[in-house]
Amino acid sequence: MRTVVELPAGQAGDTGAGPLLEVSGLDVTYRTARGLLPAVRDVSFRVERGEVFGLVGESGSGKSSLVTALMRLLPRGSEITADRLEFDGTDLLTMPESRMRRLRGREIGLVPQRPMTSLSPVTPVAAQLRRLTGGEVDDARLHELLTDVGLGGLKARLGDYPFQFSGGQLQRMLIAVAVLAREPSLVLADEPTTTLDATVQAQVLRLLLDLRERLGNTVLLVTHDLGVVAQVCDRVGVMYGGRLVEVAPTRQLFEDPQHPYTRALLAAMPSNQARGERLRPIPGTVSGAQLLPGCPFAPRCDRATALCWEVDPEPTEHAGRTVRCHHPGSPA
C-alpha cells in the first residue's frame, strides 16, 4: 500500500511561465440566517505547473469551500473576494461567466467527493457521460475512455443507471469525463476517495496518479488523509479555521513541522507513534475557529499567549516555508 510515487515537479506540462494557479488574499463568505460566516480567510498559495499540491485539514476547515471557489461554483448567497485569483495568468474573478463556463471541464476539471450522487439518478450512464463531455463523444470514444480508466468490461452495461454501479466504478467514470476526456491542465480532486471502501481508495488514487503521469496535468488534491499526502504530494498546505496555516514541501512538513497545528496533526497519526502507545488527539474542537479575531488555533494550542488570542498572525517565511504563527518552530 505504501507505494511512493516520485515525480519530478514542474517538469510535465510545463508550457507557460509562472505558476498555473496563483491565489492571494482569498476570502469566501457565506451569508446565513445568523449572519455572515467566513469559510476561507485570507488564503494565499501557488500551485506550480505539473506538481501535486495537497490541501489537508479537518472537516469544516474550509478546504472544500476553497476548491469550489476556484471553480466559481459556490452556492447562491456566498461571496468571493481576493487580491489575486489567477489561473494560467488569467484573472478568474473578473472573468465573465460565459468564459468561466468554457474554462470549466476544459481547463479545470473537478473530481467530486461523492461519486454515488454525482450522476443524475434517472438517466442511463452512457447518455450522461456523453452529455458531460459536451456531447462530442461517440460510443466508440466513450468505450475507449472507460477502458482507459479500467472499466472496459462495462461496455454492455452502459444503458444501466448510476445506482446499479459501485462507488469505485462511478468514481472511475467521473474521472474518465473530468480528467481524461478533455485533458484539463488543472485537476481539482476534492477528497476523491473519502466515500469509497478502503481497498478501492488506493486503486482510485493510483488511477489519478497514472493519468497525471500520462497527461502531465497539475493536481490540487484535497484530503484529510496525511498518509495519502505523504505518498503522493509534492507540496502541502495545511488549513485550519479557514486559514492556510502552513505551506511546505511534503518532506519538510513531515520531518520538521513549524506550526503547532501541523505538529499536533502529525502527532495524532497512528503511524507516527510507537506500538502500544496511546494516540494523541488534539484537545478541543475546530468548531467556530474561523470566527475568532486572533489565531484560529489559539484555543487548542499549547504555545498560545495573549498575543495569539488578539492578533491574527500574518503569513511569514520561516525555515524555508510559509507559516502563520506568532511562535513557529520545531518542537522543543
Binding site: 469550489t68 471553480m71 461554483l73 463556463r101 468554457r102 474554462l103 470549466r104 471541464g105 476544459r106 476539471g109 473537478l110 467530486p112 461523492r114 450522487t117 454525482s118 450522476l119 443524475s120 439518478p121 434517472v122 438517466t123 452529455r131 458531460l132 463531455t133 459536451g134 467521473l174 469525463v177 473530468a178
Partner: peptide
C-alpha cells in the same frame, strides 16, 4: 451533487435546468 458536477464540466444552465433538474 450531480448538478454541481455537471456545472464543473461547463454544462450550460439551460441543459442543467431542462434536461437534468426538471427531469429529477
Amino acid at each position: 451533487d450531480h448538478v454541481t458536477f455537471g456545472r464543473s464540466l461547463g454544462l450550460n444552465e439551460r441543459t442543467i435546468l431542462s434536461r437534468i433538474a426538471l427531469r429529477n
